[in-house]
Nucleic acid binder design. Structure first.
Lengths: 224, 224
DNA sequence: GTCTATAACCGGATAGAC
DNA sequence: GTCTATCCGGTTATAGAC
């Protein structure tokens, strides 16, 4: 099952020798298992026993590496957040709005495809009102957001794109890209009960880029 | 607190007389409270005691009206779903894609604003893989979706709008509109720690309509 | 229909042997 | 660092008086 692939991948890596290495390996093992469980059942709904079972360790070992369930959850949220912001690179490496936006959308879509559990945990944390990573929102996301929206405003003033609200644009991009991770099941049902194929997903990426770029006045020339 | 407004509203309505009326009133009372609790804590994370407390009834009474927690949750999901599809009306009452799309987006945005808890419960149910309302997805949402995407394809063939993928377009609209309910806290943080004002929300609606309509080749003439 | 008390169960965390 | 057995607090659901 795809559920256990991540755990198996970590387990198959070279046996650690020092205690330091053992700790690191087991922590990653447990975190990968926990990310899936939290994504599936939420914070409260996830049992440490289920996480331990998926990770293939006794429950007591989980508590040896992570003092509490919340501490484990917190570590995962941090990790997801870092990953989240790292996807912004394509947006920063050019001064052409078309390249920037399309690259950012593509990166976010790929992330939703490749790490859907992280996206879902994030979504549920936001829905709850971010009780655990609220600090991070202020210290990391907010400055990032101010910078990026400022960049968009600069492009708008320079006449490089239509005068749209950068905040709204970002919300649309976030919502749409993450939708492919968070609402994967709904999408599958509406796709004749089968997950999007790689071809379908590639097409979806193109379509999202096209609609967004056209939406902000940047004509895209690729085929329909 | 806004948390209790819905409950108070129901309580203040005329005192029911017959047993039938008592049941209906109390069920609505409990369901309103439960919708908030489920949205805040997820299915497993919500305790029947918390629901009862918010509804202002003893826990045993909750179990008198709803045999199990899952039965109550199921009823709420059904109710949310009905509400959900009802928002589609504006989309069906015209043959002009511009009017239809803008009306639908506006209705969905208003729904996100006015019933955010329902949107969040729905989101978490989808994230979990829809264990409870999967049947409904097949019996109600899927046919609806096929009809509506067919209508869009008709407009495209008639040259009324750009040849975009209707599926992707719907996902973008759903994701974006529901984002304003589900990620309300994140949006607040990025809005100087205050929820969007009515003016800001109205502007957001305009912007979303503008970007989507331009995105599918329907020029919008309203002011930026 | 309403409500107090409680049965039956489950989950997070730990003790303590290996 | 690993693991079994266990404690304790909390949760669903019901019994049974009013």
């Amino acid at each position: 099952m795809s559920d256990t692939r991540q755990v198996m991948k970590i387990k198959q890596q070279s046996k650690p020798t020092g205690k330091r290495a053992i700790r690191e390996t087991n922590e990653r093992l447990i975190m990968a298992a926990a990310e899936q469980e939290f994504a599936q059942s939420g914070f409260k709904g996830t049992t440490t026993e289920a996480i331990a079972r998926r990770a293939g360790v006794p429950k007591a070992n989980l508590h040896y590496y992570f003092s509490t369930k919340e501490a484990l959850y917190h570590r995962i949220m941090e990790d997801v957040c870092e990953h989240w912001l790292a996807a912004a690179k394509p947006f920063d490496e050019t001064d052409d709005p078309k390249t920037a936006l399309c690259g950012y959308i593509t990166a976010k879509m790929d992330q939703a495809r490749n790490r859907p559990f992280g996206s879902r945990v994030w979504a549920m944390e936001m829905i709850r009102g971010a009780p655990v990573i609220d600090d991070y929102l202020h210290s990391a996301l907010k400055p990032w957001f101010i910078e990026r929206t400022a960049k968009l405003n600069g492009w708008i003033k320079a006449g490089k794109m239509s005068p749209v609200d950068p905040q709204t644009l970002f919300f649309m991009i976030w919502a749409t890209t993450q939708h492919y991770a968070d609402f994967d099941h709904q999408i599958s049902v509406l796709n004749d009960d089968s997950p999007l194929s790689d071809e379908q997903f590639t097409r979806a990426k193109d379509q999202v880029c096209k609609i967004i770029l056209n939406g902000v006045g940047l004509k895209l020339l690729s085929a329909p």
